[in-house]
Lab assay of single mutants.
Amino acid sequence: TKKDTKLYCICKTPYDESKFYIGCDRCQNWYHGRCVGILQSEAELIDEYVCPQCQST
């Protein structure tokens, strides 16, 4: 049987260590910077990140 692979981001793909991720400070989920429109250089300046799903609630 195929091992359950945890899926990340709004694009629902397995973790890829070569890509940049940003963690939501509300739901603790991880998102590709590219998918949520945040560059790694911008993320370093953000104190708290809230993902699109949490922003809409």
Rank of each mutant, 00 (worst) to 15 (best):
T57C: 13
K6Q: 12
R34F: 06
P52V: 13
Q40K: 07
T13V: 04
V36T: 03
K12Q: 14
I10T: 06
D16P: 03
Q55R: 09
L7G: 13
C54D: 01
Q55E: 14
S41H: 08
K19D: 14
K3P: 06
D4G: 08
K12I: 01
C54S: 01
V36W: 00
G37R: 07
C11W: 00
H32D: 01
C24I: 01
C35V: 00
P52G: 13
G23M: 13
Y8I: 08
T13D: 03
L45Y: 08
G37I: 01
S18F: 03
V36R: 02
A43V: 12
E17Q: 11
F20M: 09
V36M: 04
C11G: 02
C54A: 01
V50P: 03
Y8T: 12
Y15I: 11
T13S: 09
T5C: 13
T1H: 06
P52H: 11
C35A: 01
V50L: 14
Y31H: 03
S56G: 07
L45C: 10
C54M: 02
D16E: 12
C35E: 01
P14R: 08
C24E: 02
L45I: 09
F20A: 08
C11A: 00
T1W: 08
C9R: 01
C35P: 02
D47P: 10
C27S: 01
Q28N: 09
I22M: 06
W30M: 14
D47I: 06
Y15K: 09
K19R: 14
S41K: 13
H32A: 01
C9G: 02
E44H: 13
K12H: 11
G37K: 13
C51V: 02
R26T: 15
W30K: 15
I38M: 11
E44Y: 05
V50D: 06
Y31L: 06
D16A: 04
Y15W: 09
E44T: 08
K3W: 03
E42H: 05
G23T: 13
K12N: 06
G33A: 13
V50W: 08
T13Y: 03
D47T: 12
E42L: 04
I10K: 07
Q55D: 15
C11R: 01
D4H: 07
Y8S: 13
P52E: 14
D47L: 11
L7F: 10
T5A: 07
